[in-house]
């Protein structure tokens, strides 16, 4: 009997710890639907006032980059230092820039 049993689908939980801050992955929960996923996330991941807001999303709906693509995806950004403010030389004495 327990062979066909299951534990409900898996959901990923993202929590915003304070308004204005980005949502951060907190972990996952099992739940039969979105309403219960939200409640379970609240009960499991905010027991110590960790959050002001929660997102839940079915784990199956998350698309992740492949570790094999790591170089192609992320290394090209390494030599584009001009995207960072420290790349630029400012005249001595200039303020508020």
């Amino acid at each position: 009997m327990s062979k066909q049993d299951n534990q409900w689908p898996l959901w990923e939980v993202f929590i915003q710890s304070k308004t204005g801050l980005p949502y951060k992955h907190a972990g996952s929960v099992h739940a039969p639907d979105k309403e219960m996923a939200l409640q379970n996330a609240r009960d499991v991941y905010t027991r110590r006032s960790e959050g002001t807001s929660i997102w839940v999303v079915l784990s199956d709906n998350i698309v992740a980059s492949n570790p094999d693509d790591q170089e192609a995806f992320f290394d090209p950004a390494n030599d584009k230092v001009y995207r960072h403010p420290t790349f630029y030389v400012m005249p001595e004495g200039a303020k508020h820039i």
């Binding site: 534990q7 409900w8 929960v29 099992h30 739940a31 379970n40 009960d43 499991v44």
Partner: peptide, 11 residues
């Protein structure tokens, strides 16, 4: 009936 519900009930 499931771990999540155990936690909810305890709350």
């Amino acid at each position: 009936p499931i771990l999540e519900e155990d936690i909810a009930t305890t709350n």
